[in-house]
Write a protein that binds this DNA or RNA. Structure first.
Lengths: 213, 213
DNA sequence: CCTCTGATCTAGACGATGACAAGATTAAAC
DNA sequence: GTTTAATCTTGTCATCGTCTAGATCAGAGG
């Protein structure tokens, strides 16, 4: 990769795909998802308007790669949170994974805002599918560990994982794109994610407060 | 309102706003949210390309009106479901409201797909804000009735409502736009919404199955 | 050192879109 | 009947996604 001087740019950028993904993140941060365009991303990287299409076929392809990157990071953070809690307390592990999910969404809103948008993302991208399933897998594992110890043993395992996923995904979505994050008097996301996942743990019938374990 | 014959259109459409909203719904059903454009909507209604802007300032304004319409219908359906369950069983009422939320999202995906998209919707539209808060209010009421009877009494009322909302919103989102609806071997939305809301009711520690009340 | 090949990028064009401005047409208030 | 305001049309502009053809470059093989 030959870098050009300040004026003339090198014909070969050297690392276009990664640079474009970084540009996309910056654009979403500054102007929202609607502000993303192949041309704007190309402009920021200092490359012709048609260059991005050679690496990611499409605008949908570029966003698919960006979403896949997001899923990879999410999987990392969830797995790290899971292993952070003791293995003999699967309920705490599950809660930690859920909280990591929500915090990822808030801290990486650029990615999260794209990760569940089949209308603008090439949804059948194979890499994206693998990364997406990998993220769900972490949650499924955490749920399975709970049931193996007898927690909510009567529930359908798969649907129980869906419930856990729904809870944290809903909270994340309502915070990032919904009315929750915009409300002035509301609690912080830290306490919110803690209490919401705790409610999940205790259910309607149980009156103990497990939000401070 | 003077309707024109088959050929020449009347200069005044007579009911443009409503017709445009209907066109938007049809477009989303056929081509997804990305297919929505002021010009396409105008084309379908048989009106010039700039006409929509006179009623809804913007594309964002048109979608805001469409989203508000969705929130109104959602509120209706949730309230109807709430009153469908006996008043002396608030837990069932809450579950009914949650299930109505999920079913609305699936049955009115055109609307739901737009209702939580501040990036394409004029989020500060006053009518939209009122309608959005109204929908959350139904859920809050159902949650409050539960706590008044002693269910989850120790939980912060507001955050408990947030948890309930998160659960159903997450399930709805994952079904409509996420990987849930696309999975081949998965359960139907009916059983899914039932079991997911039931898991919420029973929590991790309780082992009874309340999915069939 | 030279040539060739494939990868990478540029340049130009086309149709479609959102937004704006200026004017035409109509309904309704007065 | 006249005036006024609402409603809609026509024309225009910058921007965008995508396609095509061609330019430039890196590296392998001789």
């Amino acid at each position: 990769m030959r870098k050009a001087g300040k004026k003339g740019r090198a014909y070969h950028h050297g690392n276009l795909p990664q640079s474009l993904l970084a540009a996309v993140a910056a654009i979403i941060r500054e102007r929202g998802v609607g502000g993303v365009s192949l041309r704007e991303a190309a402009r920021r990287v200092g490359v012709s308007h048609a260059a991005p299409a050679h690496h990611f076929r499409d605008k949908a392809g570029l966003l698919a790669a960006f979403a896949a990157q997001g899923f990879r990071r999410l999987t990392e953070q969830m797995e790290q949170a899971r292993l952070g809690a003791p293995a003999d307390r699967p309920a705490e592990r599950l809660q930690a994974v859920g909280i990591a999910y929500v915090h990822f969404a808030a801290a990486n809103a650029e990615h999260f805002r794209v990760m569940f948008r089949p209308d603008i993302v090439r949804a059948d991208d194979p890499d994206l599918q693998v990364c997406s399933e990998g993220a769900f897998q972490v949650l499924t594992t955490a749920v399975g560990d709970c049931q193996r110890v007898g927690l909510a043993a009567s529930a359908n395992p798969r649907n129980f994982a869906v419930a856990a996923w729904s809870l944290v995904h809903g909270l994340a979505t309502l915070w990032v794109d919904g009315p929750l994050g915009r409300q002035p008097g509301g609690d912080s996301l830290e306490t919110l994610s803690l209490e919401v996942t705790a409610v999940f743990g205790m259910g309607l019938g149980n009156q103990q407060d497990r939000s401070q374990p």
